[in-house]
Computed example of a mutant assay.
Amino acid sequence: MSGLAVVSAGLGQPSSTRLLADRLAAATTAALGRDLPVEHVELRDHAHAIVDAALTGFPSGPFRAAVEAVTGADGLIAVTPVFNATYSGLFKTFFDVLEPGALEGRPVLLGATGGTARHSLAIDHAMRPLFAYLRAAPVPTAVYAAPEDWGAGAAQSDLADRIARAGAELAALIEARPAAAKSDPYEDPVPFAELLAGGG
């Protein structure tokens, strides 16, 4: 899969986490100025499968398709609610079950939501180290949204500005990223007759 993968770890429906994820995706596609397939992965819908994958060591069923959408995307938006000053357990477990190196070099836009602006530091002290360990490439601007950011007035305008800036940064990294190499080494096999001719 190529395109944009959007991982949202909100627990409620509707959730401010998914709302922020949607707005970040819209800002990114607008900055690209072209159509880009967008695959939304709501971790809430895969909660049991995520735990199963953590226990068995591999994803299965619809959850496998979600993992492939994330690991095969040109860019990733990852948004989590903040609980107890860090990302949610569901968010962390999802990234724990990915294969090592699956996100290496992948452009990532980080976002988070929480009940107070004081939790905004979770992006820098928890999320950035996680994605550095995964060898992904987070954009400089991350976006945190507290309850007051969704209201009218200056806070809302500031949130819109941060979303637009972060989306533009992710779009720039996606455009600059070289095309992925073929993942299947057997996609273009050497014809058997050619092998015989060279083996004489």
Rank of each mutant, 00 (worst) to 15 (best):
L110M: 14
G101M: 13
S120M: 13
E99H: 11
L98V: 09
F131Q: 13
V108P: 06
L98R: 11
E104H: 06
R106E: 02
K92I: 09
Y133T: 07
V97W: 00
H119N: 13
L103W: 04
F131M: 10
L98C: 12
G101N: 14
K92D: 09
A117R: 06
L98W: 04
A132H: 06
H119Y: 07
R118L: 14
H119E: 08
L109Y: 04
V97D: 00
G111N: 08
S120H: 01
D124F: 00
F91A: 09
G114N: 07
L130F: 06
R106C: 10
G101K: 03
A112Q: 01
P129L: 02
G105N: 04
D96R: 12
Y133H: 15
V97I: 15
L109W: 10
D124R: 01
M127F: 07
H119R: 11
I123R: 02
F131G: 12
L130T: 15
F131P: 13
A102F: 00
R128V: 14
G115L: 11
L130M: 15
A102R: 04
G111M: 11
L98N: 12
R106I: 06
P107F: 07
S120A: 15
F91Q: 10
P129G: 12
A126M: 05
E99M: 09
E104T: 15
F94T: 02
Y133V: 14
L98D: 11
D96Q: 08
D124G: 09
I123E: 05
K92C: 08
P100C: 07
V108I: 09
F131H: 07
P107A: 10
F95Q: 10
G101S: 13
P129T: 07
K92E: 11
T113F: 05
L130Y: 11
Y133L: 15
L103C: 07
K92W: 06
A117H: 08
L110F: 03
K92P: 08
L109A: 15
F91R: 01
R118P: 07
F91M: 07
L130D: 03
G115D: 14
L121Q: 03
F94Q: 00
G105C: 12
R128I: 07
A132E: 05
R106D: 00
F131D: 13
T113A: 13
G105F: 11
A126R: 04
R128D: 00
L103A: 08
H125Q: 02
Y133C: 10
L103N: 12
G101W: 00
V108R: 03
A117M: 01
G105D: 03
D124E: 14
F91D: 06
M127P: 08
A112R: 00
A117I: 09
S120N: 02
L121D: 05
A117K: 06
T93S: 14
A126H: 03
R128G: 13
G114M: 10
